[in-house]
Amino acid sequence: MIESYLLQSSSLTKLFNKLIETRHIYAPVKKGMVTSFNRVESLEEVAKDYIQTTISAKSILFLRNEILFHYKQENGDVKIMEPDLQRIPELVIWGCRPCDAKSFKSLHSVFNWDYKDIIYSSREARSAIISFSCNQADEYCFCTSAGSGPGHTEGSDILLTKLKSGDYLAEILTEKGQLIRDMIPAIFETPSSESKEDNLARIPIVFDTAGLKQKLEQAWNSELWITQSMRCLGCGACAFVCPSCSCFDIQDEKHGKEGVRSRCWDSCGFSLFTRHTSGHNPRETQAERWRQRIMHKFSYLPDQQGFTGCTGCGRCSRACPADMNIREHLAALINDSTSPENRVA
Protein backbone atom coordinates (compact mmCIF):
# COMPACT_ATOMS: atom_id res chain seq x y z
CA MET A 1 0.00 0.00 0.00
CA ILE A 2 3.03 2.28 -0.34
CA GLU A 3 2.12 5.59 -1.91
CA SER A 4 4.95 7.81 -3.09
CA TYR A 5 4.93 11.58 -3.38
CA LEU A 6 7.33 14.42 -3.86
CA LEU A 7 7.73 16.80 -0.99
CA GLN A 8 9.54 20.00 -1.90
CA SER A 9 12.24 21.02 0.54
CA SER A 10 10.20 24.09 1.47
CA SER A 11 7.25 21.87 2.25
CA LEU A 12 9.08 20.20 5.09
CA THR A 13 8.51 23.24 7.31
CA LYS A 14 4.85 23.29 6.28
CA LEU A 15 4.47 19.67 7.27
CA PHE A 16 6.23 20.24 10.58
CA ASN A 17 4.18 23.35 11.35
CA LYS A 18 0.96 21.56 10.51
CA LEU A 19 1.79 18.67 12.82
CA ILE A 20 2.83 20.83 15.73
CA GLU A 21 -0.58 22.50 15.76
CA THR A 22 -2.06 19.36 17.26
CA ARG A 23 0.80 17.13 18.32
CA HIS A 24 3.91 16.97 20.41
CA ILE A 25 6.94 16.51 18.21
CA TYR A 26 10.06 14.73 19.37
CA ALA A 27 13.11 15.09 17.15
CA PRO A 28 16.90 14.81 17.30
CA VAL A 29 18.47 17.78 19.06
CA LYS A 30 22.18 18.30 19.28
CA LYS A 31 23.75 19.37 22.55
CA GLY A 32 27.52 19.24 22.67
CA MET A 33 28.61 15.85 21.35
CA VAL A 34 25.28 14.25 22.10
CA THR A 35 22.23 14.11 19.83
CA SER A 36 19.06 12.87 21.42
CA PHE A 37 15.31 12.94 20.88
CA ASN A 38 13.82 15.90 22.68
CA ARG A 39 10.52 17.67 22.43
CA VAL A 40 10.90 20.51 19.94
CA GLU A 41 8.83 23.55 19.06
CA SER A 42 10.34 24.46 15.72
CA LEU A 43 12.14 22.80 12.84
CA GLU A 44 15.18 25.02 13.48
CA GLU A 45 15.86 23.16 16.73
CA VAL A 46 16.11 19.85 14.91
CA ALA A 47 19.65 18.56 14.33
CA LYS A 48 20.86 18.26 10.77
CA ASP A 49 23.51 15.95 9.40
CA TYR A 50 23.48 13.48 12.25
CA ILE A 51 24.25 9.92 11.30
CA GLN A 52 22.57 8.54 14.34
CA THR A 53 21.27 9.93 17.62
CA THR A 54 23.16 8.94 20.76
CA ILE A 55 20.05 7.57 22.47
CA SER A 56 17.55 5.83 20.23
CA ALA A 57 13.96 6.80 19.54
CA LYS A 58 12.78 4.03 21.86
CA SER A 59 13.20 6.49 24.73
CA ILE A 60 10.02 8.25 23.60
CA LEU A 61 7.73 5.22 23.75
CA PHE A 62 9.55 3.14 26.35
CA LEU A 63 10.48 5.74 28.93
CA ARG A 64 13.61 5.18 30.94
CA ASN A 65 11.49 5.66 34.07
CA GLU A 66 7.78 5.02 33.81
CA ILE A 67 5.35 5.25 36.69
CA LEU A 68 3.16 2.15 36.68
CA PHE A 69 0.91 3.46 39.43
CA HIS A 70 0.78 5.67 42.52
CA TYR A 71 -0.40 4.28 45.83
CA LYS A 72 -1.52 5.75 49.07
CA GLN A 73 -2.00 3.92 52.35
CA GLU A 74 -5.06 5.09 54.24
CA ASN A 75 -7.48 3.68 56.80
CA GLY A 76 -5.82 0.30 56.85
CA ASP A 77 -6.19 -0.11 53.10
CA VAL A 78 -4.22 0.91 50.04
CA LYS A 79 -5.55 3.13 47.30
CA ILE A 80 -4.02 2.57 43.88
CA MET A 81 -4.06 5.40 41.37
CA GLU A 82 -3.27 4.28 37.82
CA PRO A 83 -1.71 6.67 35.32
CA ASP A 84 -4.32 8.25 33.09
CA LEU A 85 -3.32 6.95 29.71
CA GLN A 86 -5.97 9.06 27.99
CA ARG A 87 -3.82 12.04 28.79
CA ILE A 88 -0.90 10.83 26.67
CA PRO A 89 -0.75 13.39 23.86
CA GLU A 90 -0.63 12.61 20.17
CA LEU A 91 3.06 12.30 19.35
CA VAL A 92 5.20 12.54 16.28
CA ILE A 93 8.66 11.03 16.26
CA TRP A 94 10.36 13.12 13.63
CA GLY A 95 13.73 12.30 12.17
CA CYS A 96 13.80 8.67 13.19
CA ARG A 97 16.27 6.51 11.25
CA PRO A 98 14.89 3.42 9.49
CA CYS A 99 16.81 1.16 11.88
CA ASP A 100 15.12 2.78 14.89
CA ALA A 101 11.73 2.60 13.21
CA LYS A 102 12.19 -1.12 12.57
CA SER A 103 13.17 -1.70 16.19
CA PHE A 104 9.70 -0.54 17.29
CA LYS A 105 8.44 -3.80 15.80
CA SER A 106 10.46 -5.76 18.31
CA LEU A 107 9.44 -3.52 21.23
CA HIS A 108 5.83 -3.88 20.12
CA SER A 109 5.99 -7.63 20.11
CA VAL A 110 7.70 -7.91 23.51
CA PHE A 111 5.20 -5.55 25.11
CA ASN A 112 2.27 -7.39 23.56
CA TRP A 113 3.50 -10.93 23.95
CA ASP A 114 0.58 -12.74 25.66
CA TYR A 115 0.17 -9.94 28.18
CA LYS A 116 -0.59 -6.60 26.64
CA ASP A 117 1.26 -3.72 28.23
CA ILE A 118 -1.23 -0.91 27.83
CA ILE A 119 1.18 1.74 29.02
CA TYR A 120 3.54 1.06 26.13
CA SER A 121 0.69 0.34 23.72
CA SER A 122 -1.21 3.54 24.48
CA ARG A 123 1.81 5.64 23.79
CA GLU A 124 2.54 3.64 20.65
CA ALA A 125 -1.03 4.03 19.44
CA ARG A 126 -0.77 7.79 19.78
CA SER A 127 2.54 8.06 17.96
CA ALA A 128 3.31 8.59 14.32
CA ILE A 129 6.80 7.89 13.08
CA ILE A 130 8.24 10.08 10.37
CA SER A 131 11.60 8.64 9.44
CA PHE A 132 14.35 10.01 7.25
CA SER A 133 16.35 7.63 5.06
CA CYS A 134 20.09 7.60 5.62
CA ASN A 135 22.22 9.21 2.95
CA GLN A 136 25.33 8.75 5.03
CA ALA A 137 26.59 6.04 7.34
CA ASP A 138 29.65 5.39 9.44
CA GLU A 139 31.68 2.27 9.97
CA TYR A 140 29.54 1.21 12.94
CA CYS A 141 26.38 0.93 10.82
CA PHE A 142 25.45 -2.60 9.74
CA CYS A 143 21.70 -2.36 9.17
CA THR A 144 21.92 -4.23 5.86
CA SER A 145 23.26 -7.26 7.73
CA ALA A 146 20.51 -7.02 10.35
CA GLY A 147 17.43 -7.09 8.18
CA SER A 148 17.11 -3.33 7.88
CA GLY A 149 18.65 -0.79 5.53
CA PRO A 150 19.19 2.91 4.89
CA GLY A 151 15.81 3.19 3.18
CA HIS A 152 13.98 0.41 5.01
CA THR A 153 10.28 1.19 5.44
CA GLU A 154 9.20 -1.22 8.19
CA GLY A 155 8.03 0.53 11.35
CA SER A 156 7.72 4.00 9.84
CA ASP A 157 4.43 5.69 9.02
CA ILE A 158 6.09 8.04 6.57
CA LEU A 159 9.60 7.67 5.20
CA LEU A 160 11.29 10.71 3.69
CA THR A 161 14.29 10.27 1.44
CA LYS A 162 16.25 13.38 0.57
CA LEU A 163 16.88 13.61 -3.15
CA LYS A 164 19.78 15.29 -4.91
CA SER A 165 17.52 18.20 -5.79
CA GLY A 166 17.03 18.88 -2.08
CA ASP A 167 13.42 17.78 -2.30
CA TYR A 168 12.13 14.66 -0.56
CA LEU A 169 10.58 11.45 -1.74
CA ALA A 170 7.75 10.82 0.71
CA GLU A 171 6.55 7.25 1.13
CA ILE A 172 3.25 6.95 2.96
CA LEU A 173 3.40 3.54 4.57
CA THR A 174 0.49 3.19 6.97
CA GLU A 175 -2.94 4.54 7.81
CA LYS A 176 -1.32 6.85 10.32
CA GLY A 177 0.81 8.15 7.47
CA GLN A 178 -2.26 8.67 5.32
CA LEU A 179 -3.92 10.64 8.08
CA ILE A 180 -0.94 12.95 8.21
CA ARG A 181 -0.96 13.35 4.44
CA ASP A 182 -4.65 14.19 4.58
CA MET A 183 -3.95 16.94 7.11
CA ILE A 184 -2.02 18.85 4.47
CA PRO A 185 -2.58 17.12 1.11
CA ALA A 186 -1.40 20.00 -1.08
CA ILE A 187 2.28 19.53 -0.28
CA PHE A 188 2.27 15.89 -1.37
CA GLU A 189 2.99 16.17 -5.10
CA THR A 190 3.50 13.71 -7.93
CA PRO A 191 6.92 12.09 -7.50
CA SER A 192 9.80 12.70 -9.88
CA SER A 193 11.48 9.82 -11.62
CA GLU A 194 14.56 10.03 -9.40
CA SER A 195 15.27 6.68 -7.83
CA LYS A 196 15.23 6.27 -4.07
CA GLU A 197 18.11 3.80 -4.12
CA ASP A 198 20.49 6.32 -5.69
CA ASN A 199 20.02 8.58 -2.70
CA LEU A 200 20.74 6.08 0.02
CA ALA A 201 23.96 5.45 1.89
CA ARG A 202 25.94 2.40 0.78
CA ILE A 203 26.27 -0.03 3.66
CA PRO A 204 27.98 -3.31 2.80
CA ILE A 205 26.50 -6.57 4.02
CA VAL A 206 28.97 -8.26 6.38
CA PHE A 207 26.95 -11.32 7.39
CA ASP A 208 23.46 -12.71 7.09
CA THR A 209 21.29 -13.03 10.17
CA ALA A 210 19.86 -16.42 9.21
CA GLY A 211 23.38 -17.83 9.01
CA LEU A 212 24.22 -16.18 12.30
CA LYS A 213 21.22 -17.73 14.03
CA GLN A 214 22.15 -21.16 12.74
CA LYS A 215 25.71 -20.68 13.92
CA LEU A 216 24.62 -19.49 17.37
CA GLU A 217 22.66 -22.70 17.89
CA GLN A 218 26.04 -24.43 18.04
CA ALA A 219 27.96 -21.66 19.75
CA TRP A 220 27.01 -22.07 23.40
CA ASN A 221 30.46 -23.25 24.44
CA SER A 222 32.45 -21.02 22.12
CA GLU A 223 35.67 -19.51 23.44
CA LEU A 224 34.69 -16.27 21.80
CA TRP A 225 32.26 -15.37 24.58
CA ILE A 226 35.24 -15.17 26.89
CA THR A 227 37.75 -13.51 24.57
CA GLN A 228 35.31 -10.93 23.24
CA SER A 229 33.96 -9.99 26.66
CA MET A 230 37.35 -9.80 28.34
CA ARG A 231 37.39 -6.03 27.94
CA CYS A 232 33.67 -5.58 28.69
CA LEU A 233 33.34 -3.36 31.75
CA GLY A 234 29.87 -4.61 32.63
CA CYS A 235 28.10 -1.26 32.30
CA GLY A 236 24.71 -0.74 30.68
CA ALA A 237 25.67 1.76 28.00
CA CYS A 238 25.06 -0.70 25.13
CA ALA A 239 21.61 -1.67 26.36
CA PHE A 240 20.51 1.85 27.20
CA VAL A 241 21.37 3.33 23.81
CA CYS A 242 19.95 0.30 21.98
CA PRO A 243 16.65 0.83 20.14
CA SER A 244 15.55 -2.77 20.73
CA CYS A 245 16.69 -3.57 24.27
CA SER A 246 13.56 -3.69 26.39
CA CYS A 247 14.60 -5.33 29.65
CA PHE A 248 13.49 -3.46 32.72
CA ASP A 249 13.47 -3.38 36.48
CA ILE A 250 10.46 -2.65 38.69
CA GLN A 251 11.12 -0.44 41.70
CA ASP A 252 9.07 1.11 44.49
CA GLU A 253 9.73 4.52 45.95
CA LYS A 254 7.88 5.80 48.96
CA HIS A 255 7.43 9.08 50.70
CA GLY A 256 5.72 8.40 53.98
CA LYS A 257 2.37 6.76 53.35
CA GLU A 258 2.43 7.17 49.61
CA GLY A 259 4.64 6.38 46.72
CA VAL A 260 5.01 4.97 43.26
CA ARG A 261 5.88 1.71 41.61
CA SER A 262 7.82 2.34 38.44
CA ARG A 263 9.60 0.56 35.69
CA CYS A 264 13.10 1.57 34.66
CA TRP A 265 15.59 0.43 32.06
CA ASP A 266 17.84 -2.42 33.05
CA SER A 267 20.63 -4.31 31.34
CA CYS A 268 21.60 -7.98 31.09
CA GLY A 269 25.21 -6.79 31.25
CA PHE A 270 24.88 -5.81 34.92
CA SER A 271 26.10 -8.51 37.29
CA LEU A 272 23.09 -8.05 39.57
CA PHE A 273 20.56 -8.50 36.77
CA THR A 274 20.01 -12.19 37.42
CA ARG A 275 21.47 -12.56 40.90
CA HIS A 276 19.20 -14.36 43.34
CA THR A 277 18.73 -13.03 46.86
CA SER A 278 20.67 -16.07 48.08
CA GLY A 279 23.74 -14.78 46.23
CA HIS A 280 23.53 -17.49 43.58
CA ASN A 281 23.88 -16.04 40.08
CA PRO A 282 22.86 -18.08 37.02
CA ARG A 283 25.03 -15.79 34.87
CA GLU A 284 28.02 -15.30 37.11
CA THR A 285 30.61 -14.10 34.59
CA GLN A 286 30.68 -11.26 32.10
CA ALA A 287 31.21 -13.83 29.34
CA GLU A 288 27.88 -15.48 30.22
CA ARG A 289 26.20 -12.09 30.27
CA TRP A 290 27.69 -11.19 26.88
CA ARG A 291 26.47 -14.51 25.50
CA GLN A 292 22.99 -13.74 26.82
CA ARG A 293 22.97 -10.37 25.08
CA ILE A 294 23.90 -11.86 21.71
CA MET A 295 21.77 -15.00 22.09
CA HIS A 296 18.72 -13.01 23.14
CA LYS A 297 18.94 -10.72 20.14
CA PHE A 298 19.95 -13.19 17.45
CA SER A 299 18.68 -16.58 18.59
CA TYR A 300 15.94 -16.41 21.24
CA LEU A 301 13.95 -13.48 19.85
CA PRO A 302 13.97 -14.87 16.28
CA ASP A 303 12.58 -18.12 17.71
CA GLN A 304 10.00 -16.47 19.95
CA GLN A 305 8.92 -13.49 17.88
CA GLY A 306 10.20 -14.17 14.40
CA PHE A 307 12.75 -11.37 14.17
CA THR A 308 16.04 -10.26 15.67
CA GLY A 309 16.40 -7.82 18.54
CA CYS A 310 18.94 -5.81 16.57
CA THR A 311 18.53 -3.57 13.57
CA GLY A 312 22.19 -2.78 13.00
CA CYS A 313 22.16 0.83 14.18
CA GLY A 314 25.64 0.42 15.67
CA ARG A 315 24.91 2.53 18.74
CA CYS A 316 26.16 -0.04 21.22
CA SER A 317 29.54 -0.05 19.49
CA ARG A 318 29.70 3.74 19.38
CA ALA A 319 28.77 4.02 23.05
CA CYS A 320 30.97 1.24 24.39
CA PRO A 321 33.74 2.68 26.58
CA ALA A 322 35.87 -0.40 25.85
CA ASP A 323 35.23 -0.52 22.09
CA MET A 324 33.20 -3.73 21.99
CA ASN A 325 32.14 -3.70 18.36
CA ILE A 326 29.04 -5.79 17.80
CA ARG A 327 29.39 -5.96 14.02
CA GLU A 328 32.93 -7.26 14.30
CA HIS A 329 32.03 -9.70 17.08
CA LEU A 330 29.05 -11.10 15.19
CA ALA A 331 31.17 -11.59 12.10
CA ALA A 332 33.73 -13.41 14.26
CA LEU A 333 31.00 -15.64 15.71
CA ILE A 334 29.86 -16.60 12.23
CA ASN A 335 33.38 -17.63 11.32
CA ASP A 336 34.01 -19.21 14.71
CA SER A 337 35.62 -22.60 14.77
CA THR A 338 36.18 -22.79 18.54
CA SER A 339 32.74 -23.98 19.59
CA PRO A 340 32.36 -27.66 20.34
CA GLU A 341 29.31 -29.19 18.69
CA ASN A 342 27.59 -30.09 21.94
CA ARG A 343 25.21 -27.28 22.65
CA VAL A 344 25.03 -27.64 26.40
CA ALA A 345 27.91 -28.55 28.67
Binding site: S246, T274, P282, H296
Partner: peptide
Amino acid sequence: LENRMKCGFGKCGRCNVGKVYVCK
Protein backbone atom coordinates in the same frame (compact mmCIF):
# COMPACT_ATOMS: atom_id res chain seq x y z
CA LEU B 1 12.71 -23.81 38.52
CA GLU B 2 13.10 -20.41 40.03
CA ASN B 3 15.09 -17.50 38.70
CA ARG B 4 15.10 -13.84 39.55
CA MET B 5 12.04 -12.16 38.04
CA LYS B 6 10.46 -8.75 37.97
CA CYS B 7 7.39 -8.86 35.74
CA GLY B 8 6.29 -12.50 35.77
CA PHE B 9 5.02 -12.39 32.18
CA GLY B 10 7.97 -12.53 29.82
CA LYS B 11 8.87 -8.88 29.41
CA CYS B 12 11.48 -7.83 31.97
CA GLY B 13 13.95 -10.27 30.46
CA ARG B 14 15.88 -11.82 33.32
CA CYS B 15 14.48 -15.24 34.20
CA ASN B 16 15.29 -16.98 30.94
CA VAL B 17 17.22 -20.23 30.88
CA GLY B 18 18.50 -20.25 27.34
CA LYS B 19 15.48 -19.50 25.20
CA VAL B 20 12.98 -20.63 27.80
CA TYR B 21 11.36 -18.15 30.17
CA VAL B 22 10.84 -19.57 33.64
CA CYS B 23 7.89 -17.20 34.08
CA LYS B 24 6.06 -18.20 30.88
